[in-house]
């Protein structure tokens, strides 16, 4: 099947197999930030934006993205660096494998709700598993980032 996807701002037209997962398609196009942590849409590692909405790319066929805009962390480098520095500031990135998915979803949260409460943060990111951090360091990083944004982006 022929699909047309705008991946991180770049228009790609391609013939793909109807059973190709979006996850495998974006990785084949060099978006290695997108990880597979399970095959059952439980871990959140494969989160990408489809038309600005976070989706689990392991559970979306590439053909479903036909005609749509897909963004991965590679396309959000500035935001990833700005927010990621706060996760790093806590040492909470640890092995890093879950980070891209969590950071994608966190960016989605900040866009949707710029001043989330602790409960709102936990709830929004509940689908992003992490086995290293115990989540506390991620929460501290998120809260420090929100305080920084509220202060006009000055640390």
């Amino acid at each position: 099947m022929q699909i047309r996807i705008t991946l991180n701002g770049r228009k790609i037209t391609e013939d793909v197999s109807p059973d190709l997962l979006l996850l495998d398609w974006v990785r084949a196009h060099g978006c290695y930030s997108v990880k597979r942590g399970c095959e059952t849409s439980n871990c959140g590692l494969c989160t990408v934006f489809m038309e600005d909405k976070p989706v689990l790319s392991c559970s979306v066929l590439a053909v479903r993205a036909d005609g749509k805009r897909i963004e991965t962390l590679e396309g959000l480098r500035k935001e990833a660096e700005e927010f990621g520095a706060f996760i790093a500031g806590q040492g909470a990135e640890q092995c890093g494998f879950c980070n891209p998915g969590m950071i994608m979803n966190a960016i989605a949260l900040f866009r949707e709700n710029p001043e989330p409460s602790e409960e709102e943060i936990k709830e929004y990111l509940a689908g992003n598993l992490c086995r290293c951090s115990g989540y506390e360091g991620q929460l501290r990083g998120i809260q420090a980032f929100l305080a920084y944004k509220k202060g006009g982006g000055i640390q």
């Binding site: 290695y32 930030s33 962390l73 990621g84 520095a85 790093a88 040492g91 890093g96």
Partner: peptide, 14 residues
Amino acid sequence: IKKDAMALVTGQPV
């Protein structure tokens, strides 16, 4: 801060 931190949080292929 961990030496590899920024590579990890920006999703570098490592």
